[in-house]
């Protein structure tokens, strides 16, 4: 059919946001989540994932740039069957700061 004529993608902002996501722990969860961001050309700056409690669940930390699509992205994330909760933190959160030593 016809080509889509749409507004160009907005540039993302410079403010960083940290998302803390509780998920079921099984192979494939990560690809569901990363696909969602990649498809929308939403750059994920940092990613960290470890199992929690008895290993049935994991916690994923994502570092992303603030963008007006972020709220929509969070709603999309919450729709995924394996996503149990999404929490937003400001860039002041220390989780990625404490990892910086490993990236020098």
């Amino acid at each position: 059919m016809i080509e889509q004529v749409a507004e160009p993608l907005q540039q993302s902002g410079f403010a960083k946001v940290i998302l803390e996501i509780d998920v079921n722990n099984h192979p494939g969860v990560m690809s569901h989540i990363c696909n969602l961001f990649a498809r929308r050309a939403f750059n994920v700056e940092g990613i960290l994932c470890m199992p929690v409690s008895d290993g049935k669940r994991s916690r994923i930390w994502l570092l992303v740039f603030e963008d007006q699509r972020l709220e929509q992205m969070v709603r999309q994330l919450e729709k995924l069957q394996d996503v149990l909760a999404v929490r937003r933190h400001s860039a002041g959160h220390e989780v990625f700061e404490r990892l910086e030593d490993f990236f020098h």
Partner: peptide, 14 residues
């Protein structure tokens, strides 16, 4: 097919 259908299913299982 699991990986391929991630973006086109409501959910998928292997």
């Amino acid at each position: 097919i699991y990986g391929m259908t991630v973006p086109i299913t409501k959910h998928n299982f292997l």
